[in-house]
Amino acid sequence: MVTVLLDSIVKRLSPYEKKSATRMATILDPRFKKIGFQHMSNAEQAAHCFENELTALMNKDSSNDTNVEPISTNKDPLFDYIGNKARSMARNTRSDAIIAKRQYLERPLSQQDVDPLLWMKVNQTDFPAIKTLMLKYFCIPATSVQSERVFIKAGQIVSDRRTRLKEENVNILLFLNQNLWLTSSETTE
């Protein structure tokens, strides 16, 4: 029975490895990274997409930066020359993205009970671009159950017999009662 259930789970969930949002969310999760994929080819494609997203994000960030020449306080012209040479060197965002990706993927996996967003908060100075990607992909809800509940409840509240309800009252009935239900269910657990 256990093997049948595991096979069924693998069969049902394997198509999600090929979808870009779930692929990115898996590789960005510090608990899974490349290990979270059933097939190594999907993990490699996810790493490639991850690298492309990092490059695009770094290109966007570098185009927003303004190049302001710092005023030299050195009295030695040798240091002025070195500073000017360093400023004139072009940055390659693709290589920066590859380095950031490798540094992130080569770190050991996090504990399974670690919240990925808290992990990112602790490590945000090491991975500022990856933090932006995490916030982008981790905000996607895994299911639509909550929104379906709200639609069903709205259909029950706003009916043919209650067509004159004000918008504010509908919002109070839908969302205030839902929040009260959520807080009461959390305290009973």
Rank of each mutant, 00 (worst) to 15 (best):
I71W: 03
S63G: 01
N64E: 01
L78N: 01
C49W: 14
A46F: 09
K75R: 03
M24V: 07
N74G: 04
L78S: 02
A47T: 12
N59T: 00
E51I: 14
N42V: 01
A43G: 01
A46E: 01
N74C: 09
N42I: 05
H48A: 14
S62T: 01
P30R: 06
A56L: 04
A56D: 02
A47E: 10
K85H: 13
N59M: 00
I35P: 05
A90L: 05
A86R: 13
C49F: 14
I35V: 15
M40H: 08
I71R: 06
R23I: 09
F32L: 15
A86C: 08
I71C: 03
E53I: 12
N52M: 13
A47L: 09
N59F: 00
K60M: 00
R23K: 15
K34G: 11
I35A: 15
G83N: 12
N74V: 07
A25F: 06
G83T: 10
D61S: 04
T26L: 12
L28G: 09
P77M: 00
K85W: 12
Q38M: 13
K85C: 13
G36H: 03
L78H: 03
M24L: 15
A47F: 08
Y81T: 11
Q38A: 12
T55Y: 02
R23W: 08
Q45M: 12
G83C: 08
S88W: 03
N67D: 11
N67R: 08
L78Q: 03
H48R: 14
R31K: 11
P70A: 01
K75C: 04
N52C: 14
S41W: 05
L78D: 03
T73C: 10
I71L: 12
D65R: 02
N84R: 14
S72H: 07
F79L: 09
F50D: 08
S72E: 13
A25K: 08
A47K: 11
N67M: 07
A86N: 09
L78A: 07
K33P: 02
E51K: 15
K60L: 00
F37W: 06
N74Q: 07
D80W: 07
Q38P: 03
P30N: 03
A90I: 02
A86W: 04
Q38G: 06
D29A: 07
K85V: 07
F79V: 06
E69L: 11
G36I: 04
L28A: 10
M40F: 09
Q45K: 15
P77A: 00
L54R: 03
M89I: 08
A43Y: 02
N52E: 13
F79S: 06
C49N: 15
L28V: 10
K33D: 02
Q38H: 14
E53L: 15
P30I: 05
M24E: 06
T26Q: 09
N42S: 05
E51C: 15
S63I: 04
L28R: 10
D65M: 10
S62N: 01
S63P: 01
R87C: 01
P30Y: 05
L54K: 04
T73M: 13
I35C: 13
K75W: 05
N74T: 09
E53N: 11
S41Q: 06
I35W: 14
A86I: 13
N64G: 02
D61V: 01
M58S: 01
N64H: 01
S63M: 04
M58R: 00
P30C: 02
T73D: 11
I82V: 14
S88C: 03
N84K: 15
